[in-house]
Nucleic acid binder design. Structure first.
Length: 439
RNA sequence: GGCCCUAUCGUCUAACGGCUAGGACGGAUCCUUCUCAAGGAUCAAAUCAGAGUUCGAUUCUCUGUAGGGUCACCA
């Protein structure tokens, strides 16, 4: 019988903003459980009463909900004190732990703590990523496992909870690898089976160091939601840092990751978080979205006064220029989109193309107006406008002497989308009025 | 410092011990273009060093070097 059902867990502690590296740990636990038809547990490790805050827990809960990393069970460690106490008593009764007199050196330290009786032996454990690790636990001494019966510490609670929850695979960051030996010692003391370990390579910042709060290029995870990244893109990106399926495919959605993920192919060395690649991947994921979905999102990220018919027409122009939804907001804030709503202000010299005389420019603009007038409102589309204007432009010495002044009259900017697109967005009347004004 | 881990283009990575070390991001150049963006094409760019094993080493072994992690009454 398949009694060896896979159980994984991800166990963040709510003591600060959740960082992006944690997303990958959560993801790999999720993927491994799903592809083995197992159970994925989320456990909030809030045993540190001083530092744990419910708002931080709410933050990662919100994050996983957004990422669609659904867990099968949720536990809060502080709800399990009775269970932890039971084990502390048992360990003390059986001589695996003892009450120890201390001389406090820092404020808040107790005069009595509970220490683990270290058998001082070598521990060798297998690791799905790192192969095999041996640690001599003598170096650890009789480490503290609880401040007192009411305040168990991390190493103890992890081992007890993993055991009680039937966790079969411990997939976590490599910073925990050196801690594993002491957790195995505790397991042996309470008679818990040893889970299979997989220590993932660290995700590093540009300086090649472990991620911390003060990294500029790497933000707290929830910020990526606020910036309007796609959950699947973020997941895709995180998965590809430290793991690779081997082929040349780069774009994966969550079900594909579940199918292709292979924990034995996980890299051993740490990887740097590369925001440019995230942006590229996000754009690729956006392109895969249905048209309506793209339009809906772009409209939502536009300021309210732009959420109208003109806003809708701007969608293709905006889409070409963004990597993530937040860029839409930024474009609007920079004033890049104002030209679609108000006639631009500019000095008339700007209409001149190279050294074409002003009179000639004026003539070209007049010609453009008279030809465009022949198009009726309904046919005022990018294609038709382009046909009309190009017919005139191609007869000139260079197309620029028509296209530049037209584009400038419409946009008032040195750099902007092409005149046909702008004209089609602002409509026939506004186009003709702006051209007239330019003349 | 002790212990543990790691090492292929700037970055993420691919390569049963065997083609010219492949792909992607980013960069550069060109094409397309009045400009921007998008798109297309091309190019530059790596096996940390030194020994050893082998007909042959990015791949296996050792040493060195570099980087990272960890050594809490945090998790």
């Amino acid at each position: 019988m398949a009694e060896n059902k896979v159980v994984t867990r991800f166990a963040p502690s709510p003591t600060g903003h959740f960082h992006v590296g944690g997303i990958r740990s959560a993801l790999f636990n999720f993927l491994f459980a799903r592809q083995n038809k197992g159970t994925y547990i989320l456990r909030s490790e809030d045993t540190d009463k001083e530092r744990s805050k419910r708002e931080y827990e709410d933050e990662f809960l919100e994050l996983f909900d957004w990422l669609n990393l659904k867990y099968d069970m949720f536990f809060r460690q502080s709800d399990r004190l009775e269970i932890h106490q039971k084990y502390i008593k048992k360990m003390m009764d059986e001589g695996f732990a003892y009450l120890s007199k201390e001389t406090p050196t820092e404020e808040g330290q107790r005069e009595e703590v509970i220490r683990f009786k270290n058998p001082n032996k070598k521990i060798t454990f297998k690791d799905l990523v790192l192969e095999e690790i041996t640690v001599d636990t003598t170096d650890l001494g009789d480490f503290i496992i609880a401040r007192d019966i009411n305040e168990p510490l991390y190493h103890l609670t992890v081992v007890i909870d993993d055991f009680e929850m039937g966790v079969t695979h411990v997939i976590r960051g490599q910073e925990h690898a050196p801690n594993t030996a002491r957790q195995i010692l505790i397991q042996e003391a309470i008679g818990a089976p040893r889970p299979i370990y997989a220590h993932l390579p660290l995700i590093l910042n540009k300086e090649r160091a472990k991620l911390s709060k003060r990294d500029e290029s790497v933000l707290p995870a929830i910020e990526y939601k606020k910036l309007g990244y796609l959950p699947d893109a973020l997941l895709n990106f995180m998965a590809l840092n430290g793991w690779n399926p081997g082929g040349e495919q780069e774009i994966f959605n969550l079900p594909e990751l579940v199918e292709k993920f292979d924990i034995s192919k996980v890299q051993k060395g740490g990887g740097i978080f590369n925001p440019e690649k995230l942006d590229w991947l996000n754009k690729e994921h956006i392109k895969l979205l249905p048209k309506e979905e793209i339009e809906k999102n772009i409209l939502e990220w536009l300021p309210e006064n732009m959420q109208n018919e003109i806003g809708k027409k701007m969608v293709p122009v905006i889409l070409e220029r963004i990597n993530k939804w937040g860029d839409v907001k930024e474009m609007a804030e920079r004033g890049e989109l104002d030209l679609y709503f108000h006639p631009p202000q500019f000095s008339k010299e700007k209409l001149i193309f190279k050294n074409v005389p002003a009179e000639k420019i004026k003539e070209n603009l007049k010609l453009a107006i008279s030809e465009l007038e022949k198009l009726d409102e309904k046919n005022f589309t990018v294609e038709n406008i382009k046909d009309t204007l190009m017919k005139i432009a191609d007869k000139l010495e260079s197309r620029g002497e028509l296209l530049h002044p037209v584009r400038f009259a419409l946009s008032g900017k040195d750099q902007s989308p092409d005149p046909f697109t702008i004209a089609s967005i602002i409509g026939k009347n506004e186009t003709l009025s702006r051209l007239q004004k330019a003349i």
